[in-house]
Design a protein around this nucleic acid. Sequence first.
DNA 1: ATTAATTGTGTCAAGAATACACCATAGATT
DNA 2: AATCTATGGTGTATTCTTGACACAATTAAT
Lengths: 236, 236
Amino acid sequence: MYSYPLSSRILLAIDCIIFGFDGKDIKLLLIKRNFDPEKGNWSLMGGFLKEEEDLEAGAGRILYDLTGLKNVYVEQLEVFGKVSRDPAERTVSVVFFALIQIDEHDAEAVKSHNAAWISLDKRPKLIFDHDQMVDRAIEHLRYKAALHPIGFELLPGNFTIPQLQKLYEAIYSTPLDRRNFSRKLLSTGLLIDTGYKNTNSATKKAALYKLDTLRYKEKFHAFWNFMPDAMKMKQT
Amino acid sequence: MYSYPLSSRILLAIDCIIFGFDGKDIKLLLIKRNFDPEKGNWSLMGGFLKEEEDLEAGAGRILYDLTGLKNVYVEQLEVFGKVSRDPAERTVSVVFFALIQIDEHDAEAVKSHNAAWISLDKRPKLIFDHDQMVDRAIEHLRYKAALHPIGFELLPGNFTIPQLQKLYEAIYSTPLDRRNFSRKLLSTGLLIDTGYKNTNSATKKAALYKLDTLRYKEKFHAFWNFMPDAMKMKQT
DNA sequence: ATTAATTGTGTCAAGAATACACCATAGATT
DNA sequence: AATCTATGGTGTATTCTTGACACAATTAAT
């Protein structure tokens, strides 16, 4: 069997950007490193790809270690491969983008990793090029959520339309019209009315919906249109 | 300075998917390997990331080697990282997606690499997981061209609206209405009428347009809407 | 009962997308 | 030089979607 010349083997890192939503703000799961290198500084959760491990499995492992969750929404975001991005050694990092339901994570695991959920507007400076990674992820979240029904990944199984609206308002930092939002959402046919009401509310209880998962899978790659108008191409 | 434990350094490959358009069909630049491994079989153009080379620079180097072109449209597509994707050795491959003007490539370089422009519907079986990479790239081309003005990257500097239409028809394998297409294109404000006419045509000569590059850069990340309707989300 | 906060739904007007028809130009044919 | 044919350029009516906006219903607190 052929073998490649002995050159250019490189340390391959995996870094995970993990978004959650607490009902009000989009949050990031970050760790305050209690290990070297860069001990004491904030960073994304990461690790190295193992020799006998598929790339996606590596991402799954790292996500599971920190959150205790499997089968969360994950996708590749981008590879960061500048020569000097890690001063210790040439390291290429594959960045993964994950959306989780914030109240389902394993608080013990998060604590043991010295991790915390942090609002986007309060995020600390991160090590290496992790700030760029986060910037890129926020951009991607805005982009993708405008076109595909990924918002649901951040909400519990049953949710109300006002909750969904708050989520989109948080993503785009912009108020949305209740009536138009509701009409658009319902017209996708992705929501099923559970018949239950949200008992938490102090006033009128909103209807609880769930995802029509069959339809969701069918229609995932089709286009949606939730991007606020200001971000669309205008003819000016 | 900290150093990482001696483990999990991995061979990092770069593979390039290069699209062109000959006025009729979308074509891929593929190589018939005259070197090992997999000598004699078809594959994407690729190479290994060098120790002292930024990732994007590596992609640029490989594209330049094959086409003689610099500053072409390139973006990261996806990382392929299954353990057994390359039987010779664990290799993780970062796949890049490139669009070039087919008539500007360096024919000598292409020849010396034993490469050829091949229509999508005539593509041979490729080595390893390169077929999956191409499938993914075609999907991405359709996706991206529907939302962003990347089609121009496949056409010469001056082009006619009918040429542009043929390009989109090739990308989506579907006929488009001339009148609506033209109106939509012109309404983007991205086209500047050069005042010249296409002299190649046998009958009425079409107007030659060029990109308004300033506007193009400004508006690149805004959304467009050239996806044929059938691919959009419908409510049914 | 009244009030305040929140949820649910309807309507109208403007804009965009689609389907479709007519005219213009240029070279080839007679 | 008249006309035929292939292709390019533009206009319009209809339908659908979007955005702005108003009013009614529900619930708990007073």
